[in-house]
Design a protein around this nucleic acid. Sequence first.
DNA 1: AATGAATGAGCTTTCATTCAT
DNA 2: CATGAATGAAAGCTCATTCAT
Lengths: 215, 215, 215, 215
Amino acid sequence: MSSKVLQDIPRMGGLDDSPRGRVLRAAAHLFATQGYERTTVRDLARMVGIQSGSLFHHFDSKLDILSAVMEEAIHYNHQRMRQALVRARDRQERLLALVHSELEAICGPSGEAMKVLVYEWESLPAPQQQALLALRQAYEQDWLTVLQEMRDAGELSYEPFLWRRLLAGAIAWTHSWYHPQGRLRLDELAAMVVAMARAGHAPTAAGDQRARIPG
Amino acid sequence: MSSKVLQDIPRMGGLDDSPRGRVLRAAAHLFATQGYERTTVRDLARMVGIQSGSLFHHFDSKLDILSAVMEEAIHYNHQRMRQALVRARDRQERLLALVHSELEAICGPSGEAMKVLVYEWESLPAPQQQALLALRQAYEQDWLTVLQEMRDAGELSYEPFLWRRLLAGAIAWTHSWYHPQGRLRLDELAAMVVAMARAGHAPTAAGDQRARIPG
Amino acid sequence: MSSKVLQDIPRMGGLDDSPRGRVLRAAAHLFATQGYERTTVRDLARMVGIQSGSLFHHFDSKLDILSAVMEEAIHYNHQRMRQALVRARDRQERLLALVHSELEAICGPSGEAMKVLVYEWESLPAPQQQALLALRQAYEQDWLTVLQEMRDAGELSYEPFLWRRLLAGAIAWTHSWYHPQGRLRLDELAAMVVAMARAGHAPTAAGDQRARIPG
Amino acid sequence: MSSKVLQDIPRMGGLDDSPRGRVLRAAAHLFATQGYERTTVRDLARMVGIQSGSLFHHFDSKLDILSAVMEEAIHYNHQRMRQALVRARDRQERLLALVHSELEAICGPSGEAMKVLVYEWESLPAPQQQALLALRQAYEQDWLTVLQEMRDAGELSYEPFLWRRLLAGAIAWTHSWYHPQGRLRLDELAAMVVAMARAGHAPTAAGDQRARIPG
DNA sequence: AATGAATGAGCTTTCATTCAT
DNA sequence: CATGAATGAAAGCTCATTCAT
């Protein structure tokens, strides 16, 4: 189906040229472009350059591969986000660090793995979901901490949790339209999202409108 | 698997109790909760209360059912959005109308069909995608018109197309966390999104930060 | 592998020409001659004259087919044995009825199914074993009743349960050497087994030998 | 699956602690409890404490291991039987020696290997069967010699070959119900079988019954 | 229209065996 | 001798679709 070869796939940090790393890179690509269910283990093996039976020396099952792709995506990007956070010197920089890290996660080399994380979440059986949820929540906690700082400083009138969900959607959705090689640079995109994030301090105007919802 | 019965599924307007309507409602529910690939035509037939072979008297193929679910979702919600738009009297009300309509599309009775539209888009072969794209673009055009009005009025410094994409993501993502029976009312959520939408008039501050992206 | 066709396989009573009956007859033959594990569902389907996928309209799994073969074997033969028992007028005739019925079960048309019952018992998962064990025990009870009668009449000095096990082995083993078309008639064979069965009244001689076991 | 370790498996004489002996002991146990087909070479290697690839330094194939288990079973038990035979001083003692030896073969340390010999015989391809058949026939000849002596002495009215088959079945079947630690001692069991064996001198009574087979 | 048995291609997974190290 | 990654054929099973009734 896809005629892409493994060499062309962006190499998310941490995935080396070991068989395991090669499988995970190919899986992220195929699961993201064709979906988990429509990707056969033969597709995957062909892209890696091995026989389908050999996949099962490295992973217990196809689901195990999916789970590993997701775990790598979270680990890698949480680590990168933390590094960016510690470099930031004030609230404003921390917000930008979060936004920029997450955009890079989605639009950069780990983008396909992140798409898999979002789109194939329900392909995972509940037990594996639980294991990954712990990692996802640790990641989200770093966001909530910064938004809570903003709230404490009077820069955010809404619940940090709710505000984060809206921002998460805006950022996640970029996978469907943002092209790294296009005219819009990633830092410009980050600036737009930061502008959105900083718009949470005017609840009164919104409140006024409540009475006027048409329909 | 799912013990839900067809009666419990919210009835998106336009889908009557004809066999066709019953199939589409069941399909929206099953495709949204289990995914298109993991839903078998037997699952679908069982929920409708017929035999699997009988589905093919109403639809040519399983893909045809998917396509119809998506088309209904777009049609129904575009129609509702237009009705809200004509009731709105000024720019501000039109923006609210768009936001509120789209939130209702995603969090209301058509929510499952909308989730299918987003999550199973790549399950559609290119030809059917093309047919639906025309409908989606007509829908998007109404958004772009209002955002362009804002831009013309100096209320938006960014490209309407880009700004719309960010808002679309924020709104679409609500399917994963907003509960209609929760404490947050839909009009309050709409107010938050409108606040985001109106934050596009301050590019300078964001521009300042460009030089300071960490990493 | 086997070039036998379904028509050549003896038709155990109760298995008609329905798809289910045809599958069970073919399965009894293949499982008995090749073993359960070495028989593929494709082998089975080929002998029945259908596609392998079609097997699964009639049975949930290959194990389900094995289980059904065994259950038919027990049911059919228990029924035949009961009919023979009620025709018998005294103890001696009852013993002969049991022996002759069981020999017919093993050397007659149900012989292959009986061989499967013995040889593939451990292929069944414990839950299905339990279900069949209830049937087997009802069958064994009829044997024990007659042997207990003999014991009460002073014709058997050993525990009926133990004596039955020895006789069961002698009878079951005939599947490996008795040929219905050979010189030995089944009633002659039955007479030999009955002679064995009636040899249980001389424990003293055996007791004498106990002290003289060599080695 | 099985948590038994190699040390717990009874050590049939002749199988030392060489790699070959260890493999054969583990194989007898696994083939007897799980069946040949359901036992993987990995199962076997794990129990022996080596890697699966290493098995093939000692045996050409999995079938070769099966064949060796069977050959050891016959050799070992034929040898033991011969030793018991030479110690026996008359016809009656020789019969007891045969019965007792065979019961020990089946209920003693070589029991699992004997079960494999019976239950997995059809797993062997014809050529290997032929090789083993020569050994089995030599073993059987010793039985037939003693039974022929009995016949010559007027103690057996039936064909020795047929009588032996019935006795063989009674003895072989003990593997399924006799527990060495139970209340029944092996010499008591042997006495019961000898009683059966000596019941072959009264064909007239059995002959009388021939006319009365019900059904 | 509705049925439901049948199809047959295709799926994930298993596993004895090989072989470079 | 031992390892263990790799092979590749074959296994049981699934499922959208067809079609005679």
